[in-house]
Design a protein around this nucleic acid. Structure first.
Lengths: 200, 200
DNA sequence: AAAGTAGCTTAGGCACGGTTAAGTATTCTA
DNA sequence: TAGAATACTTAACCGTGCCTAAGCTACTTT
């Protein structure tokens, strides 16, 4: 009954599966995983409740897949960067990449650090491993900016701090996209510069 | 049966009520509000499940009170600062205050931005209002560092970014307390300095 | 055209966990 | 010392919502 992907539509055609994933992300971001029912998710794409089970093992699986996807795509992008430029030139690119991500995926960020605990243990592990690998790349890059050897634990904390800064997008009100991007880039750079300056 | 506050105990004596609040904060931080049962909370302080109802209206009320408390105490501290030093000298103090808070209250920070959505609508409102007032103070202070008038929306986004940076403590591994404090202070200052420098 | 399959429907089972009820011990108060 | 209040106990209720079951429709395939 509902025209989700008629030939007239110029919006990108999503499979029902991807449609569910996308709509669920917004719902979870708004109300939190626990306060969204499978009926809510189904209804939001024009089908009803249990239809979800034709595409996912269950509500938790949907969440799991959603979280693994973003973590994975983030890691992939980071790897691409360090594969293409040397470490000491990779800082600005990786900041830019993560800022773009944070500005364009507020819902996913929210769900990511709010509802990870609701996912199955196995999915939590996978996500944490991906995240950890992602942070490792940041740590390598930041460490490469400095002449002397830095305490890895401190660098890691510094990286978490910068990521926290950038991931503030869900809490900020709406700004012009490019204004927000440039704001976060300069602040992130400033924070890292201050960190590095401290260690001479 | 359980000796929680015998005369021998030199730990600060918490009322059962405060004990529940404190223990619940840790449980919520670890597993998330939805995955903690009232039995879990009760058992953690040596009483059983429904005993909670002699101290709170329910599980949600406990959460609500917990969140209102921190938001309120944070606002109070911020007010104290601006009451005692002029705005353009208040930046370092408020950074220092919030860093101390973030380092000493990881659990509360986690619960705060993870489980706020699980609280009653009324409590959510109160918390958001307190938070908003808190951010307003930050905005005033940051704006006062600059000669020219800044776009308030941008300043607000910048403040959220710094708070995100500082509130990264729950994600960082353990560091020596003073190391973590000084790291977050310098990075926060650096981020704000970069923001201000951009607007000349 | 028959048959399979993908995607959906509605109805209902069933578990979980917050909440209430009812009764007990201990400590304050008059 | 009676009585009230406080802080608890266990047992049970019951609403919510995930998930399963069974069947329908439409499109593809043989």
């Amino acid at each position: 009954m509902i025209e989700t992907r008629g030939p007239r539509s110029n919006a990108p055609r999503l499979s029902r599966r991807d449609e569910l994933l996308s709509v669920a992300a917004d719902l979870f971001a708004e109300r939190g995983f626990a306060k969204v029912t499978v009926d809510d998710i189904g209804n939001a794409v024009g089908v009803s409740g249990p239809a979800l089970y034709h595409h996912f093992d269950g509500k938790e699986s949907l969440l799991g897949e959603m979280l693994v996807r973003i973590s994975d795509s983030l890691l992939t992008k980071a790897i691409t960067i360090v594969d293409n430029v040397s470490l000491h030139k990779a800082l600005d690119p990786i900041i830019a990449m993560h800022v773009d991500f944070a500005v364009d995926n507020r819902s996913l960020i929210t769900v990511h650090f709010r509802d990870l605990v609701q996912a199955r243990k196995g999915d939590q592990r996978r996500v944490k491993d991906l995240q950890s690998a992602y942070v490792d790349i940041w740590v390598d890059i930041v460490a490469a900016q400095h002449i002397t050897v830095l305490d890895t634990k401190e660098v890691r904390a510094a990286v978490h701090a910068v990521l926290g800064l950038i991931n503030s997008t869900p809490f900020s009100g709406r700004l012009r996209r490019d204004a927000h991007v440039s704001l976060l880039r300069t602040m992130a750079s400033g924070a890292i510069a201050a960190f590095l300056a401290e260690h001479r």
